[in-house]
């Protein structure tokens, strides 16, 4: 490779290669040894200029876990449901509390089946509580709380999967919470109004018809939409 001419920034080296020396006629340039060359290299460390190739991009890693606000509200609602169940019977409280815990764990892990099981347990607690009491209000409210918890938990998991915890989603979560709560309250109020009109205890015939209506309506409304 003797035919390669190496340009450089250091004038103290072999004569046939040197270009940096600006004083013509000095013969000393030929006497520098490789050792000195090393020393001069070490004494002038190259300033490392940061360029695109030196700096890797630290991209944000989205946390695809259930969103915090929805999760907190969901667990609170489940807890509220369990408490209302406790008004009717202690067993209801116990089962509801266990369900709330399972729902919470499911939210921490982002596990949909655990959320389903937890919500079902809370609902079972509410039903048991309702069987042990004659007051309508705690059971209806407990059901609303349970459905709300389940709804928000799944919504939170979905938000985590689609958008991640880092993304701004508070506004969306607030809208969904309010809409879901109002639907529950309105339908609960309707049921409550029917029971009030029926003066506490409905006639047996009415209950049967109501049951049938419920069954048919749920089957009708629960049918999957086909696109």
């Amino acid at each position: 490779m003797s035919d390669s001419s190496f340009g450089e920034n250091d004038p103290s080296l072999e004569t046939d290669e040197t270009t940096g020396d600006r004083s013509p006629g000095t013969d000393e340039t030929a006497t520098a040894s490789p050792l000195e060359a090393d020393a001069s290299m070490d004494s002038q460390p190259f300033e490392k200029i940061e360029s695109a190739s030196d700096r890797p991009f630290d991209a944000v890693e989205l946390t695809h876990r259930p969103s915090v606000a929805s999760s907190v509200v969901a667990v609170a609602a489940a807890g509220f449901g369990a408490l209302l169940a406790g008004l009717g019977s202690v067993n209801g409280l116990a089962i509801g509390a266990v369900g709330g815990a399972v729902l919470g764990v499911g939210l921490i892990r982002g596990h949909r089946t655990a959320v389903d099981i937890g919500a079902l347990a809370v609902f079972a607690g509410v039903v048991i509580g309702g069987l042990g009491s004659t007051a309508v209000e705690p059971t209806v409210l407990g059901t609303i709380a349970t459905v709300l918890a389940w709804d928000l938990a799944h919504g939170g998991i979905g938000l985590g999967e689609q958008l991640g915890r880092e993304s701004p989603t508070r506004r969306l979560e607030a809208v969904l919470f309010v809409s879901s709560l109002s639907v529950g309250l309105v339908s609960g109020l309707l049921g409550y109004a029917v029971s009030l009109v029926g003066a506490g205890a409905l006639p047996v015939d009415a209950v049967v018809l109501l049951v049938t209506a419920a069954a048919l309506l749920t089957v009708a409304l629960g049918a999957r939409r086909s696109y």
Partner: peptide
């Protein structure tokens, strides 16, 4: 009556 709430959501 708790069932009515469910129907409402459905």
């Amino acid at each position: 009556l708790a069932g009515v709430v469910g129907i409402g959501y459905a």
